[in-house]
Amino acid sequence: MVKEIEKTGIPVVHICTVVPISLTVGANRIVPAVAIPHPLGNPNLDAKDEKKVRRSIIEKSLEALTTPVEEQTVFE
């Protein structure tokens, strides 16, 4: 899906937990997520801290979208 969208020229950042799959499939901008059932959250934290985690992943993703890349890049 990432590739079909990016093919049209729209940059896509892929937030996913299993980075090797994203790399194999061919996403160009990848941001690692927390866990498969809650990629952008952590139920072990209280609501405030959980939202901080989510915000930091989104900030990382926006940074990825503003970074020119030539090849597949993982934004850790």
């Binding site: 969208i5 729209i10 940059p11 896509v12 892929h14 937030i15 994203s22 952008l40």
Partner: peptide, 8 residues
């Protein structure tokens, strides 16, 4: 302009 795509 840009897409954030999330996968589980």
């Amino acid at each position: 302009d840009a897409v954030i795509l999330t996968s589980t």
